[in-house]
Design a protein around this nucleic acid. Structure first.
Lengths: 100, 100
DNA sequence: AAATATACTCTATATTTTAGAGTACTCTGC
DNA sequence: GCAGAGTACTCTAAAATATAGAGTATATTT
């Protein structure tokens, strides 16, 4: 049984260890599309920090951005990719198995 | 409902974000006492890294160490404190609530 | 028209993680 | 009885990561 610990531990995803990145993916799993400003409102991170975390998730192809203008204001919409969804699932499985 | 997201997010514990520290606490919840060498075997981290993570958890009083000799070999035994147990519980609640 | 706000990006510093070397032994085989 | 390998750590310095704050461009409010 203990030997499973190793495989569960291996499932943990370094990108998803970070609270903001985890929360971003978890929220996107629930809400499908979210805007930068909404994340900022919910997570209360500084713009710089939030932007950096989103960028990392994008670089890893866990999320995709679509930038559009609403009137004259720029809005960035974020969505979870299939890859991001799978990574989140696996990460959660690992966490839960370890803590069970 | 969304306003709960903030409180769940706040529950996430920075110390427990790290995979090794999370796994250490999760294992100690299960096994009560574990030795350095056992963690090393299960988590496959280098000695230096594992030692550093254990130290951080100790500094935060999430775990306590007892150092003894088994024959002539030093063995460090780690145990979860009540504080560590509470932190782990709260962290897990936060994660699960966010991802649900 | 000045002040405040939104929606970001960029950059530089602070913090954290990590690997690897070092210490102090023990144990095994020759 | 001593060389080589192993155990059980700690220490240190470099690499990676996180974070804050400044900057850009525009909008809205007073």
């Amino acid at each position: 049984m203990d030997e499973n610990i190793q495989s569960e531990y291996q499932k943990l995803d370094r990108l998803l260890e970070h609270r903001s990145r985890f929360a971003i993916c978890a929220l996107l799993k629930r809400y499908d599309k979210m805007a930068f400003s909404r994340f900022k409102q919910l997570l209360k991170e500084t713009d710089g920090n939030l932007g950096a975390q989103l960028r990392k998730l994008e670089d890893a192809a866990y999320i995709v951005v679509e930038k559009e203008f609403q009137g004259r204001k720029p809005v960035s919409w974020y969505q979870l990719t299939e890859q991001g969804r799978a990574a989140l699932r696996s990460h959660l499985e690992g966490l839960e198995a370890l803590a069970s």
